[in-house]
Design a binder for these strands. Structure first.
Lengths: 340, 340
DNA sequence: AACGTCCGTGGGAGCGCTCCCACGCCACAG
DNA sequence: CTGTGGCGTGGGAGCGCTCCCACGGACGTT
């Protein structure tokens, strides 16, 4: 009983069928309250009979909105995107957007060229808002979006006083809880392998590391701090450096699970047992943590929830023009396994 | 409020500035050959000066095309999406689409409701084509897309004689090479843990397993075939069942790395050494394979390349209406590690 | 009884493009 | 000289919607 594909029915046809005007149908479709019950029903029936589905392009043109949102993933470092992290973010974002009937546009930015294309794209007003993941300290994209008047929500912040809206996890708390846990198990020379210094998440975790040491009454020893970059190879290198500088260290807080995997490999290469000689803690609680040998203690971030929260915040911004930036920091949770 | 309505320049304004007609500007923008060199230059200058970017919505409305493509990921089983597999597919797809200046719309389908919404979406003609991942035997979505006249490319096929366009990896070859490798190492009682029987990839790998046995002159013993579902837990269960039925097995071909991880856990629980007692081979060559203990021999699929190929095929279909379905099967490659 | 006021309503006027037709204009032929 | 064709061009006519204004009737007010 569905109309054959004679070209999708238009608003006008629905109006004709329902015996009302175009405006009324539009009002019904968009849930305006100023429609009589009677008209609403007639339109509803016509819509069902014709299998009417609004044409989004026309809507976008006339209403200058698109019902689409972009999720931007800078992928300059290829590895980044390989992590399950993004998948979880995507999943959260997708769930929230689906509920609001918005479309999710996924944009990986690899090259300078792609970046420019994306900037053009924003300028072309193809999306109602932008979600950004893995922003670095000097990333100008959020500012560009703001200049264009595009609602934006970041995952993480570029600096402690991020001006844009963001959803972040409690990185400081993550670092602190990891170190307190380690100290609680009697570790005294706790090292850390950081993430890239131009990412606030990395800085936050490092700050938490220091706080944790302080809380445990342990001295801060800069020789126990090595710079990593969230990659496995970086973790390996940093761990090796650490072992040279401080062969007597007895624990490591790695700023990510991937980093921890690299560190674990370096430890093994040096014949050190985990947790026997050195305890190890990561961040993310990724599947990898469970599968490491021994299973890795890790600070869990509510990644999917961050995704949801980002999308929700963005939708709010889009809906209510106003919107002073919204800031949300979600708590983390230590998951203890055999590595510590 | 969006007070800073800079008011993007329109085609008309560009035309005025360049001293030509609207049509000519449109022709230049779209690279039509029937424009004088002079006009082309004038328009180019005006575009640059005004920073003109075409409004996609208007384009979509007028031209009834959208420059967007949907990537559909059914996520009924949550695990599926957690695998790096999809990330790689997305990456490949994204790269290819970016080069063609098409947008990637990511759609996760979790619930029946979301599924219906997506069908509506297709009907609303919001995309020029559809890419589908992880299709099951009875999935009707590809047929729906075809009815709607939407170009479609699947990742994998629903059956050996898939009518739609697809890009697949050589699953049969994957199974065969794994088993031949195992046999070549002297294993004689080679078991397999399959994927879900309603997925052709799983069936293909199983067929390859049988071929491999035949090629090695080994008998097929149905007791050595256990049904899994590409999950870790499924792998564990299947492995346990296998060990009960055939305690003397000396090798296992798991239809995915994740499955292999589950199998490995079950083997360990039974006090069996890998590869000492039982050799193990997986499929995917995921990061997980490298990190398993011992590192897992696995059949590598060119996942990202499949993504690229899918997107390329779709773009071709979109461009050249005609399009008899395109079929592409990419080769796999055995990566030998310590588990076998 | 004469006047507001409110609500639900119809439909005109675009949104910024693409499509396409008709109009010069030129070169070349007859 | 007129004819014929091609080419580059301008601009009308929509694409299907939202926005908004004006209209009539129902009600309330003086």
């Amino acid at each position: 009983m569905s109309g054959r594909q004679t070209g999708r029915p238009t608003l006008e046809e629905v109006a004709a069928r329902a015996g009302v005007g175009r405006g009324t149908v539009s009002r019904v479709i968009n849930g305006s309250p100023r429609v009589s019950e009677q008209a609403r029903e007639a339109v509803g029936r016509a819509v069902a009979e014709l299998g009417y589905v609004p044409n989004r392009a026309a809507r976008a043109l006339a209403g200058s909105r698109t019902d689409a949102v972009a999720l931007v993933v800078p992928e300059t470092e290829a590895r980044l995107f390989a992590e399950p992290y993004f998948l979880d973010i995507i999943r959260g974002v997708s769930a929230e957007l689906a509920a609001a009937d918005k479309q999710l546009l996924l944009t990986l930015i690899r090259t300078e060229q792609e970046r420019q294309r994306f900037e053009q794209y924003l300028a072309a007003q193809r999306v109602d808002g932008v979600l950004m993941v893995s922003v670095h300290r000097d990333d100008p994209l959020p500012d560009l979006a703001r200049e264009l008047g595009l609602p934006t929500v970041l995952n993480g912040r570029r600096s402690p006083d991020e001006p844009a809206s963001y959803v972040d996890s409690d990185n400081v708390g993550a670092g602190r809880s990891a170190v307190e846990h380690l100290a609680g198990r009697g570790r005294r020379r706790i090292a850390t392998i950081t993430g890239p210094p131009d990412m606030e998440a990395a800085r936050g975790r490092l700050a938490g590391y220091r706080e944790g040491l302080a809380a445990a009454g342990l001295p801060v020893d800069e020789l126990l701090v090595a710079t990593g970059d969230f990659t496995e190879e970086g973790g390996r290198r940093a761990m090796t450096a650490l072992l040279e500088r401080r062969p007597d260290l007895d624990a490591v807080f790695a700023a990510s699970d991937v980093t921890a995997v690299g560190a674990r490999a370096a430890l093994r290469a040096h014949g050190l047992a985990v947790p026997g000689d050195v305890a190890l803690v990561g961040v993310d609680d990724s599947p990898m943590a469970r599968h490491l040998d021994p299973p890795l203690t890790s600070v869990r971030q509510p990644i999917e929830e961050m995704g949801r929260a980002m999308a929700a915040a963005l939708l709010r911004q889009i809906a209510s023009e106003e919107a002073e930036p919204s800031r949300l920091v979600l708590p983390t949770e230590l998951v203890v396994r055999e590595s510590s």
